[in-house]
Design a protein around this nucleic acid. Structure first.
Lengths: 112, 112
DNA sequence: GCGACAGTTAGCCCTTGCGCTAACTGTCGC
DNA sequence: GCGACAGTTAGCGCAAGGGCTAACTGTCGC
């Protein structure tokens, strides 16, 4: 659970950049090499590599190097952390609206 | 749609900080004043205010000042942008697995 | 073996983000 | 009116983020 939020932080940080979100999106369609990915973005390869490293170190993708080409694949379960967080938000919200309902259906607690 | 992704960017940036996520979570239970919120975090008020401003300028919360107290309320629909993005990821993924199925069920395309 | 090719490392620049203190503004309550 | 109280503004320091170039490493293909 402590790890949970530490990871969550990294995931949100990783997704807070449009380039990296685009990579995630692209990898949703299947694995790709760093070079293939990089070609779609207006930046140099070293710059692009930093994004790849960020995504990898935050667990959103995994990469394997075979020969001279490094292949990236999406690690889909990591996106689950975001889904879980959103679900928790929804739960909190629903608990709240439940309390509000109780409030209005128990008018003796409500001076007015 | 252009606005969509511009906003999306801001939302992810805003959520990429644990303090701000905690504020969102807290506001899920109902509105609160800046001071009340700030009291839960180990930082000075001016520092905390920056987070509030970030959340507000990215549309995750709305704030109203009445007298000397500023009240913050969650703008729940903004979280919907994240949900939409995740849903899109899922859709892309599912399209992909559909294609994979086609592939294995059409073995004449597959040398081996 | 040698050139081309894919990726990597090192180092730089500049901007942004996040924290702080100090000092100020405006409102409340007596 | 005056002190306390809630928030605000200004400005500073430092670390991290995202881009670049230049130069290097290791693999492939002929």
């Amino acid at each position: 659970m402590a790890q949970y939020s530490a990871h969550l932080d990294g995931v949100f940080v990783a997704l807070a950049d449009p380039t990296r979100r685009a990579v995630v999106r692209r990898l949703g369609r299947g694995p790709a090499s760093v070079g293939d990915l990089a070609r779609e973005f207006p930046m140099t390869l070293p710059s692009f590599m930093k994004h790849v490293r960020t995504l990898e170190s935050n667990g959103l993708i995994r990469t394997v190097k075979s020969g001279r080409v490094r292949t990236c694949v999406l690690n889909r379960e990591r996106l689950g952390l975001v889904e879980d967080w959103l679900a928790e938000q929804r739960r909190i919200w629903e608990e709240r609206t439940d309390r509000l309902e109780q409030f209005v259906t128990a008018p003796e607690e409500n001076p007015q």
